[in-house]
Design a protein around this nucleic acid. Sequence first.
DNA 1: GACACGTGGCT
DNA 2: TAGCCAAGTGT
Length: 333
Amino acid sequence: MPWRTGPRDRAAGVRPDPYRVWLSEVMLQQTTVAAVKSYFLAFTERWPTVTALAAARDEDVMAAWAGLGYYARARNLLKCARVVAQDYGGQFPQDHATLLTLPGVGRYTAAAVSAIAFDDPQVVVDGNVERVMARLHDEHTPLPQAKPVLTGYAAALTPVARPGDYAQAVMDLGATICTPKRPACGLCPWRAPCAAWAAGTMAELPKKAPKKRKPTRHGIAYLARRVDGAWLLERRPDKGLLGGMLGWPGSDWSDDPAEAPPIRAEWRELGEEARHTFTHFHLRLTVKTALVPMERTPDRGDFIEAPDFSPSDLPTVMRKAFDLAQGSWSKVR
DNA sequence: GACACGTGGCT
DNA sequence: TAGCCAAGTGT
């Protein structure tokens, strides 16, 4: 993984760069390694230091984060970079309690940065560690109730020597061997002391509270293209779903959304809805398209010149609407 | 403690 | 296809 340093680096006395550790940990929050890799490389290439990131324009960072999800992370990432640049002289604070005060840095990330970047033996507990501890101790109390107990188990194992390597090793164990389904116990270095292995309960741990089912909401997205090729887009407010991201103007998302065209035009409805699932609801998005003349002024949103817009700047749900419209327009042609 | 907050891959 | 799941944080 591009954010890891190797044994040769450390033998030469090289410590991991706190900026890269922090950036990777924020990207990895609730997100898979496979999804993070290309984003991490793009960010570090474009903004090699926290000072460089702090100087970036908001819209550039949001566009670079587009597709990775949980966009509050990107807003907090920028806030945090600016705090580090302005209040800490561009150097990440090494103190765990101070790290915890930074925007977007919670218990997990503060502990991970402390251990990995600063060799400070803080207790790193993520979903992997919870699963490994639940199995190691055959803990049947469901999450999130079991969290304090599992954290206690993790604390008892955290070593003073090489806490960063230890934390990453346990997370790697959880990610590759002690997996949620069908754990590879035959390969596990901790099989002998594992209480769940002894009891045969490893596949059913950790227990979790049952999930609530997701309701389905509906919405309308309006994709207007000006005759010169410019696109009508809108910056979403910082708070709430997809906060700070670019999107197509649209209706609210509800049981029965009202029409909300952002500009006077002959709107054509596509035959297919864009479907997307968020954390807590399913969305079926009706897509309407229109071609509008040069002189007409939108009620909402702004026209962005074609060369200044890339669909990769959009959150995935908005890109799905775009993709559907592309298909329909090419069919007409 | 409960809930809001994305996305893509896997089963 | 639909549900589950991933290196969480903020409110």
